[in-house]
Design a protein around this nucleic acid. Structure first.
Lengths: 197, 197
DNA sequence: CACCGCATGTAACGTGTTACATGATTCA
DNA sequence: TGAATCATGTAACACGTTACATGCGGTG
């Protein structure tokens, strides 16, 4: 549900056409979330159907440009005014993965955490490198804001992974015995190859 | 793409039937992400179609139980072994919202940030209250892990929002003049009511 | 009996992705 | 001329949500 409102927001800066909306979106979010052009057009159709935008019939224009309607402007204002509630956010795949691994004795939770930690650290380094690069040539506000978001959330993920490790080490030796090889009934790794190396 | 693997993971603990999978999932994730029962059945059909699970024909059983196939076990092992890459995560609606507001002069970025901050702080308090409640009666590992994930990421969001404020205050007085009322061409709030109160 | 919890589905719809088709313009 | 980029779409499919239909069993 973010493309819909994102398009409305971009149209609030004046009429645009489909292709332009994609490049604008990717520019503002620093190519973090590449936007499929097909989706732009289908979303525009739906927005037009819902009376939030209208196609502009500009006499000699090769492009099919869209503009906000009053209803569209209202929807956009409502979007800005309403916080994104934590409860209605998409399920966090990583959290689910760790939760599932934690309840499955034959899964190696430690390995999962470490593999994830490595990957997230790499991403974090990429982000900080990007930030350095951008600090020199600074245009718009949007991309730095998105970049900060990525950095803060990657840092939090590292901290969380460390906290999971912490939990694990406290638990080890008590009731949770790490099955080293050949789980009794359900072998997640029949080939014998360690998963994370 | 997390329900699919989540179901595989739960089936790794032994055959289950649909309804059971839902309650298991919600129990492990502390009702954070309620799982629609309809989706469980459709997902199970797809998993069966893809040969990752098979329905068990247990003579006198009222329930339609499913078990992992070798292929399913392999898919699950691959899921655990592969980190969730940051690039392939869903678009962050909040980051997009702030990025869009930042590029739109007539949007009140400050108000958006503050409204969000209030909501996230409330959520954070709920989470810490939940943690206290759980520390006393402790069962499984899964829910505490998910809860920590929620807490760390809410904390990071607060920090990020503060960083955005910081950016704003540095910028104010330079090129970005906060339009107080009646934007020149695109009025996001024609009614005159302040958006965030 | 009427309602609730358990249990299994289906239909309609919104959103998102990938892939394909088509044509115009620009540039080496 | 041939390839890349610009530009507009459509089709097929996966995933997710909401709502509806159906039946069983227990309990007030």
């Amino acid at each position: 549900m973010s493309i819909r409102q994102g398009i409305l927001a971009m149209l609030a800066g004046g009429p645009r056409y489909g292709y332009q909306l994609r490049t604008d979106f990717e520019e503002r979010t620093g190519n973090t979330w590449p936007l499929n052009i097909g989706q732009v057009y289908t979303t525009l159709s739906r927005l037009e159907r819902d009376r939030l935008v209208i196609a502009i019939e500009a006499s000699d224009d090769t492009h099919r440009r869209y503009a906000l309607t009053d209803q569209g402007r209202a929807e956009l204002a409502a979007w800005f005014a309403t916080p994104v509630h934590r409860e209605e956010r998409p399920r966090d795949e990583l959290a689910i993965k760790l939760a599932m691994a934690a309840e499955l004795p034959e899964a190696d939770l430690h390995a999962v955490v470490q593999a994830q930690r490595t990957d997230t650290m790499r991403a974090l380094q990429d982000y900080t490198r990007l930030r350095r690069a951008h600090d020199e040539s600074s245009e718009g506000l949007a991309w730095p804001i998105v970049l900060d978001s990525l950095i803060f959330s990657a840092e939090a993920e590292i901290r969380w992974l460390d906290a999971c490790e912490e939990r694990l080490s406290h638990l080890d030796g008590s009731h949770r015995t790490p099955v080293s090889a050949g789980a009794p009934e359900v072998d997640l790794d029949p080939a014998g190859e360690g998963a994370a190396r």
